[in-house]
Simulated scan of single mutants.
Amino acid sequence: MVDCVIKNWQGEEAGTASLDLRVAKEENAAHVVHRALVRQMNNARQGTVSTKTRSEVSGGGRKPWRQKGTGRARAGSNRSPLWRGGGVIFGPKPRDFSVKMNRKERRLALRTAFQSRVADLIVVEEFNSQLPRPKTKELVQAMARWGVIADDKVLLIVSARDENVYLSARNISNLKLISANNLNVYDLLAADKIVATASAITTIQEVYSDG
């Protein structure tokens, strides 16, 4: 169990929150998280790249020149992979890159990845009421009060999407807004700082509990 300080909109300490997640054993943690990361990145690949073999390239029905007597190399088709405009040898074809991983193992990897970022985790109070209208500048100033450096890549986790928060956050290039029930390993590991609301921490512990 880890106790985290909760900060209010002004950046002052306003309480504590407990983070209690069942994580992988230390000797297996890196392996489990790595498998989940590879799975996520592979599953994001479209796999639609395609090249044509010599049998699929148009043309090439006639022998370019006679077999002997020209002084040139033998050639049976101008669609040969050796020719410009010819087919491609062993080129990529459409394929499915997806990797399977058990649901329990995926959740274990997610909990382990989240717990490993506790040192970079900033827990804040709900701030929907502080943004009655979309205001990017106010959100940037609040993050500075919370201890986020301007160049930090930030992952902002909320319990549920609020339109004003979303509109305030979408123009910040180094900030990604995500709801607590849509967490993923890549975003957790890629961020320099993770800012989560207290209710998002509660949601994470409920949604990603053992199972």
Rank of each mutant, 00 (worst) to 15 (best):
G61D: 07
R74K: 14
L82F: 09
W83Y: 10
R79G: 00
S80W: 02
R74A: 12
G60K: 01
N78F: 04
R74F: 11
P64Y: 02
S77N: 02
Q67F: 10
S77L: 01
S55D: 12
K63P: 05
W83F: 11
V57D: 03
K68A: 13
G71S: 13
N78A: 12
E56Q: 08
K63H: 05
T70A: 13
K68S: 11
T70V: 14
R72G: 10
R66K: 14
T70H: 15
R66M: 09
S77F: 02
W83C: 10
R72H: 15
Q67V: 09
G76D: 11
G71P: 06
W65Y: 13
S77M: 03
N78T: 06
K63R: 15
S55I: 10
P81S: 01
K63L: 04
G76A: 14
G76N: 08
R54I: 07
P64L: 03
G61V: 07
E56M: 06
P64I: 05
A75P: 02
T70K: 15
A75S: 14
G60Q: 00
N78V: 03
W65Q: 03
Q67G: 09
S77V: 01
S58G: 05
E56K: 08
W65G: 04
G61H: 08
E56V: 06
S58F: 07
S80Q: 03
G76R: 11
S58D: 07
G59H: 02
S77A: 05
P81Q: 02
R72M: 12
S55P: 04
W65I: 01
K63E: 06
L82Q: 14
W83E: 06
S58H: 08
A73R: 13
R74S: 13
W65E: 01
V57Y: 05
A73L: 12
A75I: 13
L82M: 12
V57M: 04
P64Q: 04
R72L: 13
L82G: 12
R66Y: 12
A75R: 11
G60V: 00
N78P: 01
W83D: 06
G76F: 14
K68M: 09
G61I: 05
N78G: 03
S80F: 05
G76L: 10
V57R: 01
G60Y: 00
N78H: 07
S80D: 08
R54V: 08
A73V: 13
R72Y: 12
A75H: 11
L82I: 11
E56S: 07
G59Q: 00
T70G: 10
G69P: 06
R66H: 09
R74I: 15
R54D: 07
P64V: 02
Q67D: 10
G61K: 09
G76T: 07
S77T: 14
S77P: 03
G61Y: 05
N78K: 07
K63G: 07
S55T: 09
A73F: 09
R79I: 08
R74D: 07
G60W: 01
G60R: 01
N78W: 03
N78L: 08
S58K: 09
S80P: 00
P81K: 01
T70W: 14
S55Y: 06
R62L: 08
R62Y: 04
R72Q: 12
S80C: 05
S77Q: 00
P81W: 00
K68G: 07
G71M: 14
E56F: 04
R72C: 06
K68E: 11
K68R: 15
L82S: 11
